[in-house]
Design a protein around this nucleic acid. Sequence first.
RNA 1: GCCGGGAUGGCGGAAUUGGUAGACGCGCACGACUCAAAAUCGUGUAUCGCAAGAUGUGGGAGUUCGAUUCUCCCUCCCGGCACCA
Length: 965
Amino acid sequence: MRQYDHKKIEKRWQKEWEKKKAHVVKDKVAGKKNEYLLVEFAYPSGNLHVGHWYAFAVPDIYGRFRRAQGRNVLYPMGFDAFGLPAENAAIKNKLNPRTWTYANIKHMKGQLASMGASFDWSREVITCDPDYYRWTQWQFLQFYKKGLAYQKETAANWCPNDKTVLANEQVVNGRCERCGAEVEQRQMVQWNLKITDYADRLIDDLTKLDWPEQIKESQRNWIGRSEGAQIDFFLNFENQIFNDRIGPTGKKAHVTAFTTRPDTLYGATYVVLAPEQSWLTRAVYEDQMLKNNDEVKAYIEKTKKRSDLERQENKEKSGIRLEGVSAINPATGEKIPVFVADYVLGSYGTGVVMAVPAHDERDFEFAKKFDLPIKAVIEPMFTAKNGEDAVKAELPLNRREAVVCVVKHWSEDKYLCLKWKKVAWSGFVTGGIDGSESKEEAGKREILEETGYKNVRFIKELGQVVNVQFYHVLKKENRWARFQGLLFELTDSEQEQISEEEKDIHDIHWLNRDEVEKFLSVGDMKLIWDRAMGKESAYTGSGILVSSSQYDGLANQEAKKSITEKFGRAKKTYRLRDWGVSRQRYWGVPIPIIHCDDCGAVPVPDKDLPVKLPEVKDYLPAGDGKSPLAKATKWVNVKCPQCKGKAMRETDTLDTFVDSSWYFLRYTDPKNKKQFANKKKQATWMPIDLYSGGAEHTTMHLLYSRFWHKALYDLKLVGEKEPYTRRMNRGLILGPDGAKMSKSKGNVIDPDAVVAQLGADTVRLYLAFIGPYNEAGSYPWNPDSIVGVRRFLERVWRLGQLTVDSKQLTADAEVERLLHKTIKKVGEDCAEMKFNTAISQMMIFVNTAESKGITRAQYATFVRLLAPFAPHITEELWHEIGNKKSVHLEPWPKYDKKKLVSDTVTIMIQINGKLRGEVRVAADADKDTVESAAKRAVADRLTDQTIQRTIVVPGRLVNFVVLTR
RNA sequence: GCCGGGAUGGCGGAAUUGGUAGACGCGCACGACUCAAAAUCGUGUAUCGCAAGAUGUGGGAGUUCGAUUCUCCCUCCCGGCACCA
């Protein structure tokens, strides 16, 4: 018998496929639907690692599977070839980054070939090819012409050691990824893309996408949309001259606050400005409007020096009151103080906050520190969920005044708590106020009625009110009670007998402080309790407006709308900032702009594209904030395309995330000299049916490229609003020790070595078997486990040799049934990318076939199932059993439903839900037959008299419910 | 703190969506072959128990004839956001 020699086999077929151009994909194949399967293209780091295999070889299984199912599948590959490491290598080894990059690409293509992946290399895309980046530049210019790209002075991450700007992803915990120096924020003129214009569409269009919820949620968080209102606060100065001034907008001096809680406007007791806020800057630096101008200026300067890192770590509130000015609360008309404080961010909202200390935690903290008034304008409202009894009702009109009593023990530090028996609610003594009695009287009466305690001393009103909507179980009606918190103390233990009726309602517990915390089941009584213990905090939940003039009594959700209409305007705000794309680096796409003193920023005309990257000697920037390209003076100095006067090229290059924002479009028409991709050609493949990649791209590449695509869509350059219909995040392969693979830990697996030893088919199969590919988990590489997979392939090989030699002509019924089950299962699992269970099923099949025997036809079918997973060995075996064409041209086998069902089924027998036996019956047996068969099988365990009930689940089980003593 | 996703043997992971928990693989144990070892093949392998049996899917309650699966509460782990008004 021949040995399974993976080296020979894999090399032979890889050559053969290349010779036959087996993987070149045509744009149209008659009778086949197109399908676009995309994986994130590779960075040419120089070496293929296990992660690449996991990223490329496993989706290849899916691609081959879909081809077998009759789809014309595009599975392209390319290189994301611009970027920092090339430059670093160049600086270190005195190499040209281009030389380094292309050498790496060549080497990696050789490694990729060993995978046996069905990449169509005729469509290869390399982002640092001028033929590619001319179109990156061209698209950038279309955005510029549409106003989507603009230049602005913004803060950039500056590494003082490497003398260069860093991309956000190169800053790790506030330090430079490369040298570890603390990164500074420098104001620099940078190119930006208006991704914020697309914030709403980027969020709203997510709903239609077949993406994991995790990615969608991360993108929503990243964009950070808040809906609220802008409200103007006019300013009032002690110095009359300032009061009469009219500002540039034609209005008197004012600041505009952004808030998500316009309903709390009546509770706004001061206003806080960010140190960078524009009115403040003018008032302090130009007009000197403040009495304590110097003090405020010093605070602003101090804030500027604080790094982001420092600001994040030290969250202690600080701030300065602006003397000589106050703001007018537009709702109350009151004059309220104005502060500058660094807890307000200049880059979010308007940089102005209307501070409502009663209903915002940060404002509360600040107000406490600066002793500012705290005015509550929302009375908490809760809806008690009492199980199935709860009735969804309109807010009941019959509001009832009620009390809730925190009662202290007569001698210990314990408190009287009640646990309701019929309702999932635990709390204190509560009750309505009857007739004309006072709160105190009502409280004492309720304490007596509910607990029997007679001698109670009233201590104080807590000043905390809680509204609760609930379903009254005994009275069977919806209620709205307005509970006012009261504090009592028992003077002694004297207790009356309470009625039986009351006893049925609840249990009494005396609990210490910690126990009370845990005992209170719902959030409502927690507020009362906190207040009783002297804890004060901001209430940020929903409720009913009070102390808010005509809005009193409104639910805050409604009040939001009306107060916004009356005093402000509805406005959305986002956490997302515009995308800064300027990089002061050499190895990137030159930004195709020419700066002219007379004409300003002028786009390079289409005929002059691409603006090719010039050769320079030194790739490290000079330290003046300019890109290394600035040193290529010949290249920099050009004529203005408009006025032909002296002008200079833009010397910054584009962020590499720009390059990767559209690479998938180029695959559809890679050789086009006139367009980045012909729209008709795009349409044959776009949108992408499945995009598989790493979780690290969730809020970067995936968001950027969605934006880019939408912008292209608006320019009518692409035909669809979203590029990726379905996205899957791949998991991570860890080292054998369960830690992330890293050279320093010495746990790196070299795929080349494993392939040499065990073969590409084994590695592919192992990676597919390691865990479900459709869930992004992390899986340790297990050197023993991969040997198990190799063993499986060897058994398949041996089974093949046996089949060739044997003369078995008739199929074993069980093997035949299992084969059809396997076709079904493998097909279904592949469709969901659950390759692990698909392989498991094939293993089961081989195990059975080994013992029961297999016909040549059955074996041939099995080989077709395995082909997408292990393309080389199956090709070999396929030819071995007498076929001339490639197994990869074979259609996916079909299963016969009739062959799936067996004649008899095993019925489980349960007694009281516990397994007590089993019985085999005919598959088509009726209920009664099954029941009596089951009864006979466990007759020694039960008698007819004791059987209370019998549950028969056809084809599965019989459960006898019997009396037990 | 808010949001999203999780938790199943010694390990990676299965379980037709309410119906035999632990498929398949690894590991481990024993056996066969061998002078021996490797490789290969066979048998066993959730826990406790000699057994009958009992327990068991992060913990606690609930619904159900029956719960890994549904409901509520809690703990822990992973990911995103976070002084974002």
